[in-house]
């Protein structure tokens, strides 16, 4: 069971308290109705499936109930860092070697 640090509670809590909510940093267009089929496809259907660092959303559903973002390595499952929803994609990852 993973330990996940909730950036709102500022605590590491067991995975049981959280729920994964898919890839992060996919913004819904403010003018979504005018989007082309291709753009809508990219927004709604296409997801990254990297071997390595992934940016994803989690929800501390059995805690503070907040959605937040996390950087995780899909090979080791290790969390690199977590940060609050709305904060930009971190430019530099702590301890990143690749």
């Amino acid at each position: 069971m993973l330990l996940i640090r909730c950036p709102y509670c500022e605590e590491e809590r067991p995975e049981l308290e959280f729920r994964n909510a898919g890839e992060a940093h996919i913004a819904r267009s403010a003018n979504i109705d005018a989007e082309s089929d291709d753009d809508f496809e990219k927004f709604f259907f296409i997801r990254a499936n990297p071997k390595g660092v992934i940016y994803e959303r989690w929800r501390h559903i059995h805690g503070c109930a907040r959605f937040f973002n996390a950087v995780r390595d899909t090979v080791t499952d290790k969390f690199v860092m977590t940060y609050k929803a709305g904060e930009p994609k971190p430019a530099k990852l702590p301890g990143a070697s690749k």
Binding site: A21, R57, R59, A65, F67, A85, G86
Partner: peptide, 13 residues
């Protein structure tokens, strides 16, 4: 509830 919270917290904060 989850769907509503998701939009409220992340798309329409």
């Amino acid at each position: 509830m989850n769907h509503m919270e998701d939009y409220l917290q992340t798309e329409f904060p």
